[in-house]
Simulated assay, not measured.
Amino acid sequence: MQHYDITTIDGDGIGPEVCQATVAVLHEACGSRLRFTAHDGGAAHYARSGAVLPADTEAACRGAHAILHGAAGLPGITYPDGTEVGNDLHLQLRFRLDLFANVRPIKLYRGVQSPLRGWQPGQIDYVIVRENTEGLYASRGAGINLRGELATDTLVVTRKGVERVARFAFALARQRSGAPRDSQRRVTCCDKANILRSYAFFRAVFDEVGAAYPDVQRDHAYADAITVHMLKKPDFYDVIVAENMFGDILSDLGAGTVGGLGIAASAELGEHHGLFQGAHGSAPDIAGQNLASPVATILSGALMLRWLGERHADADLLTAASRVERAVEAVLAAGETVPRDLGGTASCTDMTAAICRQLG
């Protein structure tokens, strides 16, 4: 029987609570097949040691089958240039492990009321694929601040980067059942090709790649317009692919339409490595009080199981991934154990216990 080594990085704020809650749920779903090893990293560790990502933690991440992360970042802990230290933990892993595809499912679950009036579970179900290693964020740490008078950052788009994230998006669409509105497999390219040459290039390469997927419809949307469409016709979307910064912004908007960041899972994937964490932040104001919702991280754990199952042709892990997702939805749909961010009073341990019982 195949076993899988998972490096966990609890991080800061609510990170330890939601990460360990997810470990408990995954143990319930998979038994001893997953072997978790905890390693240091994050803003608090930087304050103590001067390293946000210690060398031994990076080595453990490289050697593991997957990485599970809680959250990182604390107020007031910044680099000399004013940027946040905590974000740099997964940014360093993202670039060093070449995690080029950031996958953010946007799904309205039973038991969760969308702030979009009238939309029901099953009607909002799409995935945002964010190019994760280029775009504007590739300039992090390399921009120019000239005498405190002028600051610049450079948006970077390469053919290789766009080709591989576009292929990832089209391949993902082939695995899905299409958009809720019409069951059409569709990939929407989000850009500003009407204004900037970098985005016109992004769109052109997207179309070149898409020509090899005649069974998947190609769609285009400007970044400003799609923010309206995601609110007025979310059922039209199946897979959306975007440059780094646009994908970051759209992911949070999409999460807001299905209940918020507390229910938003995230997977950062490369050819050889995968990092999984909830899309929310470290929420230091409620850290250590058992108030955080572990749902986003638990759903990210399910994404991890599915990714591992596909990579290793492990049907049991694929089944476990579906079981975890169904357990989360069943708990939310029952309406008896509801986290605070969704209007309930359930604690982190309450949610964890309820999901484990549903799996049992």
Score class of each variant (00 low, 15 high):
Arg104Leu: 02
Asp248Ser: 13
Leu342Tyr: 08
Leu317Tyr: 09
Ile286Glu: 12
Gly344Val: 12
Pro80Tyr: 12
Thr8Asn: 06
Thr352Arg: 15
Glu163Asp: 11
Val157Asp: 05
Ala29Gln: 03
Thr57His: 02
Val209Phe: 10
Gln2Asp: 11
Ser251Met: 08
Met304Ser: 08
Val18Tyr: 01
Ser177Glu: 14
Val156Glu: 01
Gly260Ser: 05
Leu359Gln: 01
Asp88Trp: 11
Gly70Ser: 06
Glu336Gly: 14
Arg104Glu: 10
Met230Gln: 14
Asn102Met: 05
Gly31Trp: 00
Arg96Met: 09
Ala255Phe: 03
Gly247Ser: 05
Cys30Leu: 10
Val324Thr: 04
Glu325Lys: 01
Leu250His: 09
Gln123His: 10
Cys19Trp: 04
Asp191His: 15
Arg357Phe: 05
Asn194Ile: 06
Asp219Leu: 04
Glu28Ser: 15
Asn145Arg: 09
Leu275Arg: 04
Tyr79Thr: 09
Asp40Cys: 13
Thr133Arg: 06
Pro284His: 07
Gln358Arg: 14
Ala279Gln: 09
Asp191Trp: 09
Ser251Cys: 09
Ala265His: 05
Gly31Asn: 01
Leu172Pro: 02
Cys356Gln: 15
Gly281Pro: 02
Lys233Pro: 00
Leu231Phe: 04
Gln20Pro: 00
Ile286Thr: 03
Val18Gln: 09
Leu146Ala: 12
Val324Gly: 03
Asp191Gln: 12
Phe202Ile: 04
Glu134Ala: 03
Thr83Leu: 12
Val25Gln: 00
Leu155Lys: 15
